[in-house]
Computed example of a mutant assay.
Amino acid sequence: MPKDPYAALGLTKTASADEIKKAYRRIARTDHPDLNPDDPLSEARFKDAGRAYDLLKDPDQRRRFDAGEIDASGAEKAPRGYYRDEARRPENPYAQGRAGGNPFNDAFDPDDFFASFGRNRGGGFNRSGFGDRPGEDTQYRLSVPFLDAATGTKTRITLPEGGTLEVAIPEGARDGQILRLRGKGAPGFGAGRRGDAFITLDVTPHPDFERDGDDIVVTLPITIDEAILGGKVPVRTVSGTVNVSVPAGASSGQVLRLKGRGVKGRTGKGDQRVILRIVSPPRIDAALKQFMEGWRADHPYDPRAGKEPV
């Protein structure tokens, strides 16, 4: 049984949608398998958090889980008293007849039973077999890593009844997108065609990339000297690492744009927005401290001038 989704994220049922997202991103940053190789506990925490986020990020699924309609895996739960009530329904042949609910008593008419069964199934049934009817559509959910959704891939899902189904994830696939696989549902009756399979995609968030429409947003840490002097700095994109030109005199929060480095949309590819963040060195040594003190004495300036205090 999957772990309680709120507990997996270190939250309670009162958590907001934003708190749920932040909790998952925090765990993804600390316990991602790429950052903790050969650490099964971190991998388990990451997987539990991913399953929890997949369930709770959807408001309707979260409501249904909180109401006890589905379990932590997203599977349907029978309502309380369902099986008792179902057994007692007057139209249920197993609720009639002799004590114990046996329909095959002296009054049992097989013609009536099979005709009623055929009507409940949608018609076409008689004592010689089913008529030609299309098969049922099937519904599945598929968890897709962020980068696979951005660049497109092929994968397989294991079906509950056994076997696998190949699924082509289109480039630029979105969270919640539904794929329709024609003829991959349940088999039909007689000469009826197979139903279709509908795959709902759950795109797993990435610790570094965030999607905004068709744009990709990343934060790029830079050093003090890179901010002052400028230069070429490597930055990850969904399709690989490229060098970005940091202008001299860059500030934290400044946004650089990489054209066409986003994800595929209806009108082409989006861009990648790179948000600069200046990071001080881990240790301020005497030479840097002395230099900055001398520079500040000779070059005073106030970046907050003219702004009202918050």
Rank of each mutant, 00 (worst) to 15 (best):
A287Y: 08
P110S: 10
G176S: 08
L258M: 14
A186D: 07
L55P: 01
V244K: 02
A173M: 05
P59V: 09
I222N: 03
Y301G: 10
V238H: 01
D212C: 02
A248I: 00
A87F: 15
H206D: 15
G163P: 02
A44N: 10
S251Y: 11
R141D: 10
F104D: 01
A78R: 13
G162Y: 09
P40H: 11
Q254P: 00
D302W: 05
P221D: 08
F46E: 02
G97D: 05
Q290F: 07
G231A: 06
F114M: 12
S280R: 15
P205K: 04
G260D: 12
F189I: 00
A297M: 09
E69T: 04
R156N: 10
S280A: 15
R84K: 13
A15L: 01
D58H: 05
T267M: 11
V310N: 11
S280T: 14
S128W: 14
D66Q: 00
A95Y: 10
A67I: 00
D225M: 12
Y24A: 01
L181I: 14
D18E: 13
R156A: 12
N105P: 02
T12R: 14
A52E: 02
Y140T: 03
D111W: 09
D111G: 04
D71R: 00
R194G: 07
E308D: 13
